[in-house]
Simulated assay, not measured.
Amino acid sequence: MPPTDENPIPSVWTRPRRQREQLSREQIVSEAVKLLDAEGIEALSMRRLGTRLGAGATSLYRHVANKDELIELVVDEVYGELEVPDADGPQGWRAAVGGSAYSLRSMALRHPWVASVLGQVGLVHLGPNVMRMSDRMLAVFEAAGFPPEETDQAMSTLVAYVIGMATSEAAYLSLIARSGKDERELMESLRPSAEQAVRDHPRLREGHVAQRGKDPQQLREANFDYGLQRVLDGLEARLGRKDG
Rank of each mutant, 00 (worst) to 15 (best):
L186T: 02
V64F: 05
G56E: 13
L235W: 03
L70V: 01
L23A: 06
P112K: 09
L228A: 06
E77C: 10
N223M: 14
R199L: 12
P8M: 13
S189Q: 14
V97R: 01
L109E: 10
T167E: 11
T14G: 03
P202G: 02
N7V: 09
A177C: 03
E149P: 01
L35A: 11
P10K: 02
V117L: 09
G50V: 08
L109T: 07
V124A: 04
A222N: 07
E142C: 13
G80T: 04
G99Y: 06
R205I: 03
E236F: 01
A171Y: 12
H208P: 01
D88I: 15
R178I: 08
V114A: 08
R18I: 05
Y172G: 07
D86S: 14
A139V: 06
L44W: 01
D5E: 15
V130P: 02
Q22F: 07
G240Q: 14
T58L: 12
V29L: 03
D200R: 05
S134E: 13
R20H: 11
A115F: 03
R18E: 09
Q120L: 08
R18P: 11
M46P: 02
S179Q: 05
L104H: 02
H208N: 08
D243N: 13
V64R: 00
Q91W: 02
T58F: 04
E221T: 01
P216L: 02
S156Y: 11
K34H: 12
A197S: 12
E195M: 11
Q217T: 14
S11R: 03
E169M: 13
E39V: 13
L118R: 03
R220H: 08
H201I: 13
V84P: 00
M1D: 10
R220D: 08
E42W: 03
P3E: 07
V124L: 10
A55I: 01
S189A: 15
A38E: 13
G180F: 07
A108L: 15
R178Q: 13
R230I: 14
Q196W: 12
A87F: 04
D37E: 14
